[in-house]
Design a protein around this nucleic acid. Structure first.
Lengths: 205, 205, 205, 205
DNA sequence: GACTAAGCGAGACGGTACGTCGCGTCTTAAA
DNA sequence: TTTAAGACGCGACGTACCGTCTCGCTTAGTC
């Protein structure tokens, strides 16, 4: 007998449930198109065709091109795993930035971000989703490092996590979006070295 | 991408000369549309209609939507004037960043940049133009400050201008594009305070 | 195309029987939509929504939009009652035509016919049902009049009922479908007066 | 020198004039589709594809499916020529009706009419165009016959042309739309024979 | 009283066509 | 030669309905 007290997921749901295969086909098609031609070539029509799915089915799940692209992006973020915890603040920060640089340089993530950033900057709904599901993770990591650093007495205890996060990641995205400089791993070290002195100093940040 | 209004003195030219008024009408219409609906609503067709000009006329001057937007953007950058030269490195840097923050916050520049950044990141032709005509100016300013600071012995002499520039401006554009935090003037101080220690320290940047 | 509400006495039937209320709700919704927007706006989806019924439920009863419209039409025809039998051929014919004019002018019947005629003309299945259940009734009436008139010696005995029926009703539907002239009651008199001389004359019709 | 007083056809016209070839291709494609599958299968998309023309180009000329079908229909009506003028009323009327029957039976006209009639009955814009460009011609013919007949003393002089026209053509369209009886040529004779007595008699019609 | 077949709601799904927007090119007449 | 005007082929948009198909629930009759 089943345990009748188990919560039935969405109990009153009616109607035919969405096929999980369809979802997967759409995301796969989107990823392929993105890889081949970038965000410029991403169209709802193209995705539907490539996925072997009706246009209406795509629209039923993603109300816009951007929402779809964001879904793929978030899907990819899941795979990014945090590095091991070490005792040294500098090493930890470098690890975090390097992981970000690696993802942006070696996966679709960079191209998708480039194509998505204009929408992200303009559409509040989209940017909220992005911040909640992507940025928040990175901030958490930085917050953890700062907290541990402060405990050990290596860092000032009154640091503004948001600001530190902006100082660390800002240059990376600046390169991705505007300067076009390569996102080489050593960039992580240079950023951390530039910001770290301020994190230990006396003058309030 | 001709944005000059100078008279072209080509002697052997025949036929009707381009009306200078037309150029102005197009740029004005573009600016208005940009202000009202952002880059999303900027279309060649709309610009032509609003300017009371034929579509072909717009195309004759700007080969694409992006080229047109960039022309407006560059047109606006001209108006940004450098602050006065002072003896203090920190003050100079803060002045530079604050000027950038002011322009992005109070003029169309911010919205235009948000709308344009995806194109800028993707189109080499466009990004080159942007870097040559916009970024280069800012780097020059920073380079000047660093040089004077080194002369006075306030700064290390071996600094990488490009890197410093990225550290300073990165966080600002990060806010503009991704985090959505306000571009308040005090942000300039906080950035400079965070980076400055590294510019005077012993460890190589 | 079951339009009967009679209890189906099939003995071996199992499962839940159709709710009679559902049938009524669907027909009512159809009539309303027809009245408001004509046949153009009649959609299965709309009917289901308006009736508060699932699309599948509508399809289970009426396999197409036209079948549904025809059901409503036939439902309405039932209400048309024949006039009293009188001794005068002319009066009887006028009565018949006038009843038709009245129904077409004052009820939904006219609009429904206008919307349905294209389907009626093209779909053999549909037109057969229409002729059997609607036209046949009118022909019967005319046949009765002609027979009684012949018995009394008022009319030629060799008349072609089908032809007479076409001569009488043709002009009415011509107005309804093509000329747009009003279907006023006096039109009945004028038609009968035009056709009657031929029904009594010597020359074979 | 040109005669400056000559009326220049649409003198102030600007822009590229519509290609006549395009018009022809669209109408040809429409005719083909109509012939193959009837009005049911007539779609703007299909017409555009078959004509090798952009959908927008079709819409630029015909704002709806019905307008397009009507254009083809009117185009076909042009080709119907009147029979020779003879001294006998009956012969003339039979000629007219027979011509109509022939066109409806042997050309696309019948099928198009069947498909179009629902729209014709409902859309005032459409029905007006149809009456002005198609029905009016037939009424003119009938009017001519009646007038000449009255001059010769063969017909009553006070006949209502509109009514006579409805009596003559009503039965034909009744067959086309509702009864499904064949439109054989002899039907013309039977109609005329049925109506003619009333046109010469004493009782006012 | 349990089983079972149908009615029924809901909604996913693959489709077709819709009518519109904007693109970038072209052809024309006027300035 | 520039300009205004507008036709044109094209690609994509987002929506409306279509008719079919699962689902899970409800409601009978039959065993």
């Amino acid at each position: 007998m089943s345990t009748t007290t188990d919560a039935d997921p969405t109990p009153g749901r009616r109607g035919r449930p969405p096929l999980p295969a369809t979802e997967a086909k759409i995301l796969a098609a989107t990823r392929e198109i993105l890889a081949e031609g970038g965000v410029r070539s991403l169209t709802m029509e193209g995705v539907a065709a490539r996925a072997g799915v009706a246009k209406t089915t795509v629209y039923r799940r993603y109300r816009s091109r951007d929402e779809l692209a964001l879904a793929v992006l978030i899907d990819m973020v899941r795979t990014v795993t945090a590095g091991p915890e070490v005792a040294d603040v500098r090493t930890e920060l470098v690890q975090i930035l390097r992981a970000t640089l690696d993802v942006l340089r070696t996966t679709l993530m960079g191209r998708v971000m480039q194509g998505l950033v204009s929408e992200l900057a303009v559409d509040p709904h989209l940017s909220e989703a992005f911040r909640d599901q992507v940025v928040a993770l990175r901030i958490e990591e930085v917050a953890g490092v700062l907290a541990r650093g402060a405990e050990r007495g290596q860092l000032r205890p009154d640091l503004d996590v948001g600001l530190v996060h902006e100082l660390l990641f800002g240059p990376i995205y600046y390169r991705l979006f505007l300067s076009g400089e390569p996102l080489e791993p050593s960039f992580a070290d240079r950023i951390v070295d530039a910001v770290l002195p301020a994190l230990v100093g006396q003058r309030p940040l």
